[in-house]
Design a protein around this nucleic acid. Structure first.
Lengths: 169, 169
DNA sequence: GAGGAGTTGCGACTTAGTCGCAACTAGTCG
DNA sequence: CGACTAGTTGCGACTAAGTCGCAACTCCTC
């Protein structure tokens, strides 16, 4: 049975299943990541998690993120450096998805298509590569901004969104 | 006519065509990027470029990379943070390609397939998104390392490469 | 060859992320 | 229950990537 919506797993449960020690700090951090409505960076995560457990230290944030990354429970993103050099984190979803970052309004869209899975399969097959993590990030201009600007910001005057429509046929 | 090999353009020529001033520093940096046989990070780029023009300053490296990125003449990569937090740069190719980073031996493979272009087209069409940059990075274990290790490092004892083969059918 | 817009070097600064070590604690075992 | 200990944390100092303002310089045009 397939679902089109992205499901995120319960990180805490996964940790316990793997026999990893649950500390107050880890609990607070994980809950913060899971209940955040958007992608959080390390600094924001620290601030938010401190509301749950004021003891949390910056080093613990990085160490916990490292742990969760290694266990493949979270994904690390750059979001095309829309907001400087920081990294963003999100709980992994049942199927991989890509991120579309609008350089104009800064909005991040998540998108998934069966083609992505097919592409991954082809990568694995053609290169004999065992895939552990995939990161597909797209930067450009979202549909709303294209409509607003009647074309694309970075191409100057030209209505280059039309070109991309053509290319999509 | 399609070619399967990745062609990189002459960055210097592109700059001139766009009426951008060619300075000694920019020339040295661009030549360094184009003649590097692998992906270079900012610090390495500085060191290498100084062999051509000793005046070059660190700030100029970052400013030039920024310029080339904005003009879409180079791509910026993380290579899955295989080597810490630095970014890597390469001259854009005629068709987009993805990077496969082996967590075991550290090798970077470049890979291209028509499926990637189809995926980009689908992203553009389904979301009305005008794509400016795409970055697809894959981390895992390359075929050589899978063969050597008779399975996959990060899955422990299990021969998880077989699982990925199965998934690729 | 002169003029000026654009570029650069310098150096101080910011911010992300790391590390060693002593103190603490979650979970286990008796 | 209470003690034990491997694993985790806080602290604080550190590294490394990247940025910025400003004065000096230089590429390009005329």
């Amino acid at each position: 049975m397939e679902s089109n919506s992205l499901e995120r797993r319960s990180l805490l449960q996964e940790l316990m299943l793997r026999g990893i020690r649950i500390t107050g700090q880890r609990k607070a951090l994980i809950e913060t990541i899971q209940e955040a409505d958007c992608h959080v960076d390390a600094a924001t995560l620290l601030t938010l998690a401190r509301k749950r457990d004021s003891r949390i230290n910056r080093a613990t944030v990085y160490r916990t993120l490292e742990l969760l990354k290694k266990l493949r429970l979270i994904d690390e993103l750059d979001l095309m450096h829309l907001n400087g050099e920081k990294h963003f984190y999100e709980a992994k979803t049942n199927i991989d998805h890509m991120h579309l970052a609008c350089f104009r309004c800064g909005r991040i869209e998540e998108f998934t298509t069966p083609l992505f899975e097919r592409l991954k399969a082809e990568i694995a097959r053609q290169n004999g590569f065992h895939i552990r993590v995939v990161r597909l990030e797209v930067g450009g201009q979202c549909s709303k901004c294209c409509a607003l600007a009647k074309g694309c910001m970075d191409c100057g005057e030209e209505a280059c969104c039309k070109a991309s429509e053509k290319a999509a046929i």
